[in-house]
Simulated scan of single mutants.
Amino acid sequence: MKYFSFAVLLGIQNGFTTSASLANEKIYEAAQAKLGDDVLLSSTVTAASRSDSGHRILVSSPEGKQLIQADKLIIAVPPLLQNLEPFDLGDRETEIFAQFDSSFYHTTILRLSGVPNNVQIFNRGVDTPYNIPVLPGAYVFYPSQIPNLFTGFFGGGTVELSEDEVREIIIDNALQLRNAGYDVSDPEVLAYGNHSPFQLIVSSQAIANGFYRDLYSLQGLRKTWYTGAAWHAHDSAALWRFTERLLNERVIVG
Score class of each variant (00 low, 15 high):
F87A: 04
H232E: 12
S49A: 05
E168G: 05
R50H: 06
L22F: 14
K223G: 10
L177K: 12
I75V: 03
A174G: 10
G90N: 14
N14K: 11
G54M: 07
P197W: 08
R124C: 01
F141G: 02
P197Q: 12
I57H: 02
S204G: 15
P129L: 07
A98L: 08
S162D: 06
Q32V: 00
A174P: 01
G228C: 14
Q176D: 09
L161K: 01
Q219G: 02
Q99A: 04
P79I: 06
Y3D: 10
F150S: 02
M1C: 07
A31M: 13
E85H: 14
E188G: 10
S204F: 14
S203L: 06
E160K: 00
G155W: 06
H234V: 05
R241N: 11
V184K: 00
S5M: 09
L80T: 03
R250N: 06
I132F: 14
V115T: 03
I68P: 00
V45W: 01
A237Q: 10
A30M: 07
A138Y: 02
A206Y: 13
G64C: 07
A47F: 11
Y130S: 11
Y105W: 14
E93F: 12
D164F: 01
P197S: 11
Q145K: 02
S185E: 13
G152M: 07
D91S: 04
Q99C: 15
K223T: 13
G220D: 12
F198L: 06
A76G: 00
L239Y: 00
E25G: 11
L41R: 09
L73H: 04
F104K: 11
E244P: 03
Q219N: 02
K26H: 10
H195S: 02
R111T: 04
L22G: 04
I74N: 07
H234K: 03
E188I: 15
R213Q: 06
L190T: 10
L80W: 05
D214F: 03
S19P: 13
V39F: 09
R222H: 08
A237N: 05
V126G: 12
H55T: 12
K72I: 01
S203M: 14
I170K: 03
A138I: 05
T107N: 01
Y28L: 08
P78H: 12
Q99Y: 15
L22A: 11
Q205G: 09
S19D: 14
N179I: 03
S103E: 14
S42Y: 15
G64R: 06
I57V: 11
P143E: 03
T158M: 11
S103C: 08
R92W: 14
T107C: 05
H234R: 00
S53P: 01
D164P: 02
A233C: 13
Q66C: 01
S102Q: 14
L221W: 12
S102T: 15
N118S: 07
H195F: 15
S103Y: 15
S53F: 10
K2D: 04
T107E: 13
A238M: 07
I96A: 09
R50N: 15
S144T: 10
A206L: 06
L22Q: 08
E29D: 09
G181F: 09
